[in-house]
Write a protein that binds this DNA or RNA. Structure first.
Lengths: 337, 337
DNA sequence: CCATGATTTGTTACGAGTAACATTACCATA
DNA sequence: TATGGTAATGTTACTCGTAACAAATCATGG
């Protein structure tokens, strides 16, 4: 066999193109960035050579010499949650048309994992970071400070931001929904909480404050595992066991609420006559189902979109105009409370 | 003000660490990779200096000299679709523990966009690619060939793969579900199709073949826009207008099916007595709702997981063991047919 | 007390593209 | 035809970490 020609299977470089044309790689480099800076005959020859070899630009040298990767790191707690899928969608809808690449990472709600993921993203010289959660370790804060790139925190608008935060006031949202249920006559409202992350803790506080403000006794069922329809059904059973006259359920997200709602339907519990159910986030399904789920509608995609827009603005050298952007939420009473 | 010390705000390099300790960067480099290759006193001093400066490794030189980024490019048609969120989850569940970074991109079902996204991913020297759809332009095929990195296609197991494909037989799946509905007595089944991508076309073919095989007349409602609950409701209206005695609906995905199902509930159409409804994919919601949605359960997360596993295996130098991996689907008749 | 080998640290070169500077080619005009 | 000026192309140096090689240091045994 001929094992001569083959072997050199590495992708073509500017030098390969230059050799084919008979010029230096500098000329090819110039052609790629400003075609007219090269003479007309060369333009054609270089263009043909690029096509022949299938040349693809290489960002590595640029990342090395200019520390600019044109990539943005996105660090979220989870990919399992629909909320974050929508955030990613919002982010990508801005970054991609702007020519930025998204580097996605997740840390499963673990602080140690967050540290290592941020280090990893920084090791790729990302030009900016979008991260979530409002609490960060000192090590994370130091890494971000040293990296000297713009960082935007999303999801929560209450905690003081590292630089800039875009989110909602989860506590106020939970308070509002709880109060709404109380005003509609519910007294024995149970809160279903999962994951127990920062945002969930804020929501619980909002719920508990609303309950005690109205002279009612809060009852919160908690799990550290992820939320799911099944978990919502399980929580329903437990709630009825602990508090048989439960007349309202407020869930940390739509999954739990829908799980609880279907479980009620299966056991002949009428919604909302017997028990009122409310969720959190307002996913598409809750806007379509029968009965319509009462929920707190949150601007998840907007959060991603705005975060990306502000990040790009800062990459263009603009200063931070607003350290905290508090996005509005909306209470939708649907048909389930 | 003192503008002396500040200014040099770029992130610390190995040289900075070395200067602080009083050695060459080579020594620090060695310490980072094999701490014991450096004398004990130096180990401590270097460790302290790294901490003081907040040094973060830089992958750029490695990418440049070894063309190894430890990043995997993932190109999907859309991020809007829950199917792909779950695929991403599967991919990340393997890549992240293996120390690989995910570079995510999407192309909105456009072939031109696919070309440019692949070029972008390659420009970052990704070590491997996971892409979707089975049809690719010549330019894409050439880029992939020149890049010389392992490529895995997911979602479809029928078309001949570039190198390796992992997916399901969409046509067979649609055929199976259609036949199942027919065997349960349905005659006037309408197909709801959206997006009209490769996979949808396969499904339509499966549905139509099953119908004609059983002497029935297929009727397919189509839209090029994305599927949604609303679209499912609209399709229902149109189906009843075009074929008032419609007794079955088979949808290209669960969203359309659920939208149609809820629309039926609202108009007093009984499911499945009056109309049988089936979806495709078996998302969590369809496994929890009342009535349980009949659906084709597809191994979305498995697809991602397997794709990532096979990719890693090939990055470790193993050959392709199976060019096409056809994953099983499952018909779940639920309570809606 | 020096030779020998082992251990530790240092030096040089490289990867791909580009900024900055240097050179060459070419044209028009005096 | 020499000259000035511009347009086109070439050269050099640089980015940061590390492989490969070189040098220095140290310990041990004869």
């Amino acid at each position: 066999m001929d094992m001569a020609i083959k072997m050199k299977n590495k992708r073509p470089t500017l030098q390969d193109v230059a050799d084919l044309v008979g010029v230096t790689k500098m000329t090819v480099s110039r052609y790629l960035r400003t075609p007219d800076s090269v003479s007309a005959p060369l333009q054609e020859k270089i263009s043909a050579a690029l096509e022949t070899l299938g040349y693809i630009p290489n960002r590595a040298p640029d990342i090395l010499s200019k520390s600019k990767s044109h990539a943005i790191g996105v660090l979220l707690p989870s990919l399992t949650n629909q909320v974050f899928s929508e955030v990613i969608r919002g982010i990508e809808s801005v970054l991609e048309p702007a020519g930025y690449q998204t580097m996605l990472a997740h840390y499963g709600y673990s602080k140690e994992a967050e540290e290592s993921r941020i280090a990893t993203l920084l090791s790729y010289s990302v030009d900016g970071l979008i991260i979530s959660e409002s609490y960060h370790t000192d090590r994370v804060r130091k890494m971000l400070a040293v990296a000297g790139i713009p960082v935007i925190e999303i999801m929560d608008s209450v905690s003081p931001p590292i630089e800039q935060a875009i989110g909602i006031d989860n506590q106020a949202a939970a308070y509002a929904m709880t109060e709404c249920m109380i005003k509609r006559g519910r007294q024995k409202i149970v809160y279903f909480a999962a994951r127990m992350d920062q945002r969930t803790l804020f929501k619980i506080r909002g719920y508990e404050t609303a309950m005690t403000d109205h002279g009612l006794t809060p009852l919160c069922l908690k799990t550290h595992s992820a939320s799911s329809f099944t978990m919502g059904a399980n929580f329903l059973k437990e709630a009825l066991a602990q508090q048989p006259d439960t007349d309202g359920i407020f869930c940390t997200n739509d999954d739990l609420a829908i799980g609880a709602l279907y479980a009620c339907q299966k056991s002949g519990i009428r919604i909302p006559e017997d028990i009122a159910i409310a969720g959190f986030h307002g996913h598409d399904i809750s806007r379509a189902m029968v009965p319509l789920l009462a929920t707190v509608i949150t601007p998840r995609e907007d959060m991603g979109r705005l975060a990306a827009e502000h990040l790009l603005s800062r990459l263009q050298g603009n200063p931070i105009t607003q350290a905290v952007i508090d996005l509005p939420f909306k209470i939708d009473i649907g048909e389930s409370i």
